[in-house]
């Protein structure tokens, strides 16, 4: 296998400083996810199989992620989720269902919580994206991150970044007035470990504390 052929998106320009590791990682432009075993059902005769090459010229997109502006060349099919995880190495944003049903990929785009898996990266031109990695400041966890630890708002932790990004929005949107309201406005975030009551408690506590979120 000729490894040199494995070319992922290319970072064209980047206005912030990166650690050596990050810079190396971006400049190498290599594939970063491994063998991702995502079952794709057969497209049988009944399906929409087609023979077009599916090999696009890279397209350019500029967006700001966690305060850093990036100019990137990407496969036009790349979702915002894959861009964050595979090209910018921001794997805190999780890929759960990849179809908008679980909320694990929740990020803030121009301040609003959205699903990164149902967003094409190319459509985020000039947008400001914030991920879970942006919440901690100067080495201190965000109040909601601390509350999730205190109230044990998770087990496996895979839904947690999405829950926290969504929970921050829930408080900012002033929809955290009661347990019932939190349950309703957090319904887009599934937790298969069943930590829901603790998640509600964590959000309630931060909301009631009046902390800046």
């Amino acid at each position: 296998m000729n490894n040199e052929r494995i070319v992922r998106g290319e970072e064209l320009e980047n206005e912030a400083d990166f650690s050596e590791e990050r810079r190396f990682f971006l400049k190498q432009s290599v594939a970063m996810a491994g063998l991702s075993f995502l079952p794709v059902p057969f497209v049988t005769a009944a399906g929409g199989g087609d023979s077009s090459p599916g090999n696009p010229e890279p397209v350019k997109v500029t967006l700001t992620v966690n305060g850093t502006r990036h100019r990137l060349a990407i496969d036009v099919r790349t979702t915002l989720l894959d861009l964050l995880r595979e090209q910018l190495a921001l794997t805190g944003t999780k890929k759960g269902c990849d179809f908008g049903q679980c909320g694990a990929c929740t990020v803030h785009v121009d301040g609003q919580r959205t699903l990164a898996c149902l967003s094409f990266a190319i459509m985020q031109q000039s947008k400001k994206v914030h991920t879970i990695e942006s919440l901690a400041k100067n080495g201190s966890l965000h109040p909601l991150q601390q509350a999730f630890i205190k109230h044990d708002g998770f087990q496996c932790g895979y839904c947690t970044p999405g829950q926290i990004m969504s929970g921050v929005s829930c408080i900012r949107e002033k929809k955290a007035g009661s347990a019932e309201e939190i349950q309703e406005y957090m319904s887009g975030n599934l937790c298969r470990c069943g930590a829901y009551p603790n998640i509600v408690n964590a959000i309630m506590e931060v909301k009631n504390s009046g902390s800046q979120v």
Partner: peptide, 23 residues
């Protein structure tokens, strides 16, 4: 394509396969 919440879902599953997306 506007919000994309349904079309991207359908494209991922191969139900709809547009040659061109007009954002």
């Amino acid at each position: 394509i506007a919000g994309g919440t349904n079309l991207i879902d359908l494209m991922k599953r191969g139900i709809v396969s547009p040659d061109k997306l007009v954002d």
